[in-house]
Design a protein around this nucleic acid. Structure first.
Length: 259
DNA sequence: AAACATGACAACCGCGTGCTT
DNA sequence: TAAGCACGCGGTTGTCATGTT
């Protein structure tokens, strides 16, 4: 997609656009030798014609060895939804609760999977929002009166949420033996139709770099009841209704009071 | 079969924050 | 204390793949 469409161009001395396998190799080698950070030195020390920002992004989002690859699992999905309900678009905060997932990945996932549903339902939920606002105003008044009490309660809630998230993740780990998939060339940002021997070589380097021995045969178990439930919920037109429907399970602390 | 729409994802950009000098 | 720098974050854009008409 790149060069012919204006990508891969040199801008003020810096290369832009999709990364090549060779660039990845150089960056991985750089981090292996010097560690993360000092991204602005990468160009000089690693011989890359990329600015520090670009290098950091590539490392954080694709090359870090602890990254999961492959589709977001239903359990991760439920966690994303729950944490987004709590924190909003604080993707990095959400990502911290999902080991191996990046803020960029979660952000993209949210935009493509949830935002449209939310938009569709927004018209239907305007009234609900008004109710929510009124309740929040009421709640704020209460908070003035019992601020100290609420602070303590919030701390307890956060701890409970964290525990539940960890539980969901644990459950997920045990039920779904997740095996990170080797990324397709296009996922790596390379041009699938123009992969050279050098690219292939560097790609092999990447596979060896990734832990747990990547292969493409992700093992999936039968979906659990909860997964089926969530799968069904995504198909509901009224997102708000979905949220209320799941209040017992995942939204207990978040939306149940307003349903 | 072609045109168009949508999904998915990589990458860039601008801004805020915190650290260093 | 202020200025400069590095880094991180969230929003946005661009491109290809896939599905639909």
């Amino acid at each position: 997609m790149g060069a012919q469409m204006g990508w891969g161009i040199i801008d003020e001395g810096w290369r832009k656009g999709p990364w090549t396998a060779e660039e990845d190799r150089l960056l991985i080698e750089y981090v292996r030798l010097h560690g993360e950070g000092r991204w602005n030195s990468v160009a000089r020390l690693a011989g890359l014609r990329r600015n520090g920002k670009s290098c950091r992004l590539r490392w954080v989002n694709y090359l870090r060895p602890d990254l999961k690859r492959g589709q977001i699992t239903p359990h991760e999905e439920s966690i994303i939804l729950e944490l987004h309900a709590r924190w909003g678009n604080r993707w990095s905060t959400i990502a911290r609760s999902l080991p191996g997932r990046t803020d960029n990945e979660i952000k993209n996932y949210w935009r493509t999977h949830f935002k449209k549903k939310a938009k569709i339902s927004s018209d239907n939920t305007d009234k609900a929002k008004n109710r929510l606002l009124k309740r929040q105003q009421f709640h704020q008044q209460q908070q003035h009166q019992h601020q100290h009490q609420h602070q303590q309660q919030d701390m307890q809630l956060n701890q409970l949420d964290l525990k539940r998230i960890m539980f969901l993740l644990d459950e997920s780990e045990h039920r779904v033996p997740y095996i990170p998939q080797a990324p397709r060339p296009e996922f790596m940002g390379y041009h699938p139709n123009t992969i050279t021997d050098q690219d292939q070589q560097a790609n092999n380097f990447f596979y060896n770099w990734m832990p747990n021995g990547n292969n493409n045969s992700a093992i999936m178990t039968e979906p659990s009841n909860e997964e089926i439930l969530w799968d069904g919920l995504w198909n509901l037109d009224d997102f708000g209704a979905a949220a209320c429907a799941t209040s017992k399970a995942s939204f207990h602390n978040l939306v149940a009071p307003f349903c």
